[in-house]
Amino acid sequence: MPKILPISDLRNNFNKISEICHTEEQPVYITKNGKGDLVVTSHKYFEKLLAKLDLYDKLMAAEAEYNNGKAKLTHEEVFKELRGRYEEK
């Protein structure tokens, strides 16, 4: 369940909000005058979100290539290429 707190808590209970963000690994939604205003989250959680967005972008690009008829590789070709990259390092 998302945590929704008034903006006054950000000023008065910052340490509590920081603890929630770090221990529960979820964002805290801050309201101002009863309406959504900010989202506060830990750096770790934010980095996870960015990684997911990057993955989704890559998946969308791959799906677009697939739908546009780009040449496809077989399972064996993919693993042969990966093994070659691994052996180079």
Results as ranks from 00 to 15, higher is better:
Leu55Thr: 09
Glu19Gly: 03
Ile30Ala: 04
Ala51Val: 01
Val28Lys: 01
Ala61Trp: 02
Lys44Met: 07
Ser42Val: 04
Lys89Gln: 09
Tyr29Ile: 15
Ala64Cys: 01
Val40Arg: 01
Pro2Ala: 10
Glu88Ser: 14
Glu25Arg: 09
Tyr66Ser: 08
Tyr86Glu: 12
Gln26Glu: 14
Gln26Arg: 15
Asp37Lys: 14
Ser8Phe: 04
Tyr29Pro: 00
Glu81Asn: 10
Ile30Cys: 05
His43Ile: 13
Val28Phe: 04
Ser18Glu: 12
Leu55Asn: 04
Gln26Cys: 12
Glu65Thr: 05
Ala51Ile: 01
Leu59Lys: 06
Thr31Asp: 00
Ile17Leu: 15
Lys58Pro: 00
Glu24Leu: 14
Lys16Trp: 08
Tyr29Arg: 06
Thr74Trp: 03
Lys16Phe: 11
Gly84Ser: 13
Cys21Pro: 02
Thr23Met: 05
Asn68Gly: 08
Leu55Met: 12
Asn12Ala: 13
Val39Ala: 13
His22Ile: 12
Leu50Ser: 07
Ile20His: 03
Glu24Trp: 04
Leu73His: 05
His43Thr: 13
Pro27Val: 06
Glu65Cys: 06
Lys89Ser: 07
Ile20Asn: 02
His22Glu: 15
Glu25Phe: 09
Leu38Trp: 12
His43Asp: 11
Met60Ser: 09
Phe46Ile: 01
Asn68Asp: 13
Leu73Ile: 05
Pro2Arg: 10
Leu59Glu: 11
Ser42Leu: 03
Glu81Asp: 08
Leu82Thr: 00
Gly34Met: 09
Leu59Gln: 10
Leu10Asp: 01
Lys35Leu: 13
Phe46Thr: 06
Asn33Ile: 00
Ala51His: 06
Thr41Gly: 02
Lys70Tyr: 10
Met60Trp: 03
Glu88Thr: 08
Val28Met: 04
Leu5His: 03
Pro2Asn: 09
Arg11Asn: 08
Ala62His: 03
Asn13His: 15
Leu49Ala: 05
Pro6Ile: 06
Asp9Glu: 15
Glu77Cys: 04
Glu19Ile: 07
Ala61Lys: 14
Pro6Thr: 10
Leu10Ala: 10
Gly84Lys: 14
Ile20Cys: 03
Lys48Asp: 11
Asn15Gly: 01
Ile30Phe: 04
Asp37Phe: 13
Val39Lys: 09
Tyr45Gln: 10
Asp37Gly: 00
Ser8Gln: 15
Gln26Lys: 15
Lys44Leu: 11
Thr31Arg: 01
Ile4Trp: 06
Pro27Asn: 07
Leu10Ile: 10
Tyr56Ala: 09
